[in-house]
Design a protein around this nucleic acid. Structure first.
Length: 411
RNA sequence: GCCAGGGUAGGGUAGUCUGGUUAUCCUAAGGGGCUGUGGAUCCCUCGACCCGGGUUCAAAUCUCGGCCCUGGCCCCA
């Protein structure tokens, strides 16, 4: 039998409904903040991604050549494409641009819990606003969106200037190494690195800084930071808005184009791949030949959110099953039409089952049975049976529809 | 790329150590009886040893390779 490609998944209706429900909660929050959805191509010029992240990522992408000999790649992330689109299509649009996306991405990596080769990201990008309140808005939105999903998480907020300032006299190569070790909280390796440089007090400052939960203290450790006022303002807005976060000034976020605030979200029940959100302030547009523009954005690892939510994610659709005798089928079709017009998922027997077996099937798949037989045809009513409680009553069609609709809005 | 544990009907499983009858049980699915409560009950049916090589009279079972799954390492844009 044919298997699906490694690291991909099939989604059956139950799971799909759960995913759509969470997806729409995210969309709805983004919409309320004014972030409008955009869509970019599933594949792009390979160059777009190597310009952003370096040649090293080719090994972790789905790269192919098309029939015209173009080097293309399935998108491994969306930010680069969104910024390309901004430069191509929207450079002169009124600022700021508030955009969001929900899209699948592809990475050629070893699958494990919460990591798949095809995975979905829900992200937002705020383009062209360069202020403390802009940074704060994006973080507040991140918090709002994660809250809407119901996932349990920790939000960590940091800023690159602190570590950068402490390391300003260190060679770039070593800087990179130290930042990676701080990000991983690999203090053993960090001490080794610093020992070899003969700077014991730097180690002290760095480890204290990473653990530091107080902004003023952090400024004392890190020394004079030009962005101090903006950082204080941003954090002030977050505190005023009662955003739940903790300070983590060790966050490195891998790549060099991040310039300021950075933040990450972690689920507490996921194992090794527990990061469910990552983002920050970055400058990327100039890489793709645009004018330099400040941007801030984040992406939510949608699949990890779903794994973290587990079984709790699902909310079942209310289903009405029409149960009828063959003679009553035309009337039953009218009844079904009325239920469907009211927005109720309504199903009829297609298997030629007898009355009893229709009901038996309904009991497994529906919340209500709507019974239409000779008696109901004659009285122009329907018998509505609540399949959970077993109660039933013969009432008008309108009353039956109203009752099913009401039960759906409760659920 | 590395390490560990796995892969038996649609789902869940027994059997594997110690090779040997028609591969166990639950569930789901389909057909039939019953024809206004059948979420019951009775009868019937469908359906599996991941793939390939090796050992053997004989392989789900032992062995080698591959594929895939689960978790971890690495990486994580």
């Amino acid at each position: 039998m044919l298997q699906k490609p490694r690291g991909t998944r099939d989604f059956l209706p139950d799971e799909m409904e759960a995913r759509r429900a969470v997806e729409w909660r995210l969309r709805e929050v983004a919409r309320r903040w004014g972030y409008r959805e955009v869509c970019t191509p599933e594949f792009e010029d390979l160059e777009l991604f190597t310009m952003r992240s370096g040649e090293g990522i080719i090994g972790e992408m789905y790269v192919f050549e098309d029939k015209g000999g173009r080097k293309l790649a399935l998108r491994p992330e969306i930010t680069a494409a969104v910024i390309r689109m901004y430069i191509n299509e929207a450079k002169v649009a009124p600022k700021p641009l508030r955009w969001c996306y929900y899209a699948d991405c592809f990475r050629y990596e070893r699958p494990q819990k919460g990591r798949y080769r095809q995975f979905w990201q829900f992200g937002v990008e705020l383009i062209g606003a360069d202020s403390a309140i802009a940074d704060a808005e994006v973080i507040m939105l991140a918090s709002d969106m994660l809250n809407a999903t119901g996932v349990r998480y920790d939000l960590k907020v940091g800023h690159l200037s602190f570590v950068k300032n402490l390391l300003k006299d260190v060679e770039p190569e070593i800087q990179r190494k130290i930042r990676a070790q701080l990000d991983k909280k690999d203090f053993e390796g960090l001490n080794l690195t610093l020992d070899s440089m003969n700077k014991p007090d730097l180690a002290e400052s760095l480890t204290t800084l990473v653990a530091c939960q107080d902004l003023n203290e952090a400024f004392e450790i890190a020394g004079a930071i030009p962005e101090r006022e903006r950082i204080e303002q941003t954090m002030g807005y977050l505190d005023a808005a009662k955003v739940k976060y903790s300070l983590n000034l060790g966050i490195a976020r891998g790549l060099d184009y991040y310039t300021g605030i950075v933040f990450e979200g972690f689920a507490d029940n996921l194992g090794a791949e527990n990061q469910i959100l990552g983002g920050g302030v970055y400058r990327l547009a100039h890489l793709f030949g645009g004018d330099d523009v400040a941007s801030c954005g984040f992406a939510i690892g949608f699949d990890r959110v779903m794994v973290s939510l587990g079984e709790s994610a699902g909310k079942k659709d209310t289903v009405a099953a029409i149960v009828c005798t063959p003679e009553a089928r035309n009337r039953a079709l009218d009844v079904a039409k009325a239920f469907r017009s009211a927005g109720i998922r309504t199903e009829m027997d297609l298997m030629g089952r007898g009355f009893g077996q229709q009901l038996a099937h309904a009991a497994k798949s529906a919340a209500f049975a709507v019974i239409i037989g000779q008696r109901e045809v004659e009285s122009s009513e329907v018998t509505l049976k609540n399949l959970q409680s077993g109660e039933q009553k013969t009432i008008t069609l309108d009353a039956a529809v109203a009752e099913v609709v009401a039960s759906g809005s409760r659920g």
